[in-house]
Design a protein around this nucleic acid. Structure first.
Length: 275
DNA sequence: GTCATTGTTGCAGG
DNA sequence: CCCTGCAACAATGA
């Protein structure tokens, strides 16, 4: 399931494969994929050239030369493939962009949870989804000064707060569990109980996990593949996510799985203490 | 048929 | 009005 490192991996793959290409034809097979008017989406995208592919948190930003950007969120299982092979298109291919070199950029999504939206490039900061995003790891805004007040004003459990994209953005369920294990904080700790040291540790661990995720090419916990079809290997580096019943790599205690804020949550009941 | 899975949104209730 | 918790949503597989 794509989180920030996976989206970054897709971004890099698409830049290598479709940057500078003109979009000759657009086919939308699943109408709900598009937020807004589908006909207008097709009309505006057809004939434009992809100038660059960017990213903000988990949003992929496909910039076009006509002043518009396709904001694409992969949700659980959205993927992009670039291929000239007709076999790359199947019943889960919901958007097909035919490029000027004969290749097709195919958006594939088994669960149909992902969404695309067209938005003026110079107005992205005012887009409803982008606007409220908090600082993301590895950015200049991801500082103790910025994060402390955002985290401390909540009394709900820290796991839920870290998942809230308006507090800080980019971390999803997998990496939040990994970060909290790394800093030895129990996922149900009230956010406003954290110490300065805790927050600093969360910031550092988040940067480290995102960096490692990107270097590993993302994780393939369910079905993730990058734009070239290659699988990442971040899943091999996970310490607690999906590891319930196995020994904690640090102390040997059995990893437990509970529900926090309605989400499956993996942690070590010995290492990770409630603050 | 039921449940779990995801990120996001919207709403009920305190 | 603010905050929190929770249901709903999309589709699928166990």
């Amino acid at each position: 399931m794509p989180e920030m490192p996976e989206v970054e991996t897709v971004k890099r793959g698409l830049n290598a494969q479709v940057k500078g290409r003109k979009i000759m034809h657009v086919e939308i097979r699943y109408q709900n994929l598009i937020t807004g008017d589908v006909e207008q989406f097709i009309e505006f995208v057809t004939g434009s050239t992809i100038t660059d592919v960017g990213r903000r948190a988990k949003f992929l930003l496909i910039h076009l030369d006509n002043g518009y950007t396709i904001i694409s969120h992969l949700r659980m299982e959205g993927r992009y493939r670039v291929s000239a092979d007709p076999a790359a298109i199947d019943k889960h291919s919901h958007a097909i962009f035919t490029l000027d070199n004969g290749q097709k950029m195919i958006y594939n999504d088994v669960r149909k949870f992902g969404r695309m939206q067209l938005w003026p490039t110079d107005d992205l900061q005012n887009n409803k989804s982008i606007q409220k995003l908090g600082p993301e790891p590895l950015s200049s805004e991801f500082t103790f000064k910025n994060l402390k007040p955002r985290i401390m004003r909540h009394r709900k459990d820290i796991k839920t707060v870290l998942l809230d994209q308006s507090v800080m953005s980019g971390l999803g369920n997998i990496y939040v569990d990994e970060v909290l294990w790394k800093v030895k904080i129990h996922p149900e700790t009230p956010a406003n109980h954290l110490t300065d040291e805790n927050i600093q540790a969360i910031i550092e661990a988040s940067n480290e996990e995102m960096k490692m995720g990107i270097e590993s090419g993302g994780s393939t916990v369910r079905s993730y593949v990058d734009a070239t079809g290659h699988t990442g290997h971040m899943q091999d580096r996970l310490k607690v996510y999906g590891k319930e019943g196995t020994p904690c790599p640090r102390c040997g205690t059995e990893i437990k799985k509970i529900k926090v804020g309605g989400r499956g949550t993996h942690f070590c009941p010995y290492c990770q203490v409630v603050q």
